[in-house]
Amino acid sequence: MKNLFVSFVVLMIAWLLLNWTLDPINLLIGSGLSIALSFIFCSKCELFTSINLTPKAFLYTFLYLGVFLIELIKANIDVTKRVLSPSLPINPGIVKVKTRLKSKMARLILADSITLTPGTFTLQVEGDTFYIHWINVEHTDVETATKELVSKFEKYLEVLYD
């Protein structure tokens, strides 16, 4: 039931964004299509089982997006500096981090966020262990690297997913 509801909401938002109008006829077609598609493709799927549908989670979605954008801009400036400085001050390496997140979806979002941030890159995922290629290795031990790379996203994702 939750899966159906979330996939309906996602499809409906995509439809509204593409059409950008609130005509009644448009809404009717959109909701009909969204219901049909979520029943066809998501009647047995377990994609969104672990998602939390509370007001707090709704708020934290936007907080997460904000934090992610800020990190993205900070990392972009950092990588720009490294690329443009004549001595090419890079210090690459592959570090190991552990995450507290349990659900698959949350781990997927965490790995994607790490990959999208310039300077860090998820190379391999083994259960709760991520192997991350980092352009400027500051700490090689697991705890400090986890604190440095994962914790800033993790505390928001924990609220969003069980």
């Binding site: 210090n91 690459p92 390496g93 190379l123 192997y131």
Partner: peptide, 12 residues
């Protein structure tokens, strides 16, 4: 191969 500048390779 990884570059010679590489500090650690935990995966290996």
């Amino acid at each position: 191969p990884l570059t010679k500048l590489t500090k650690t390779d935990k995966l290996k």
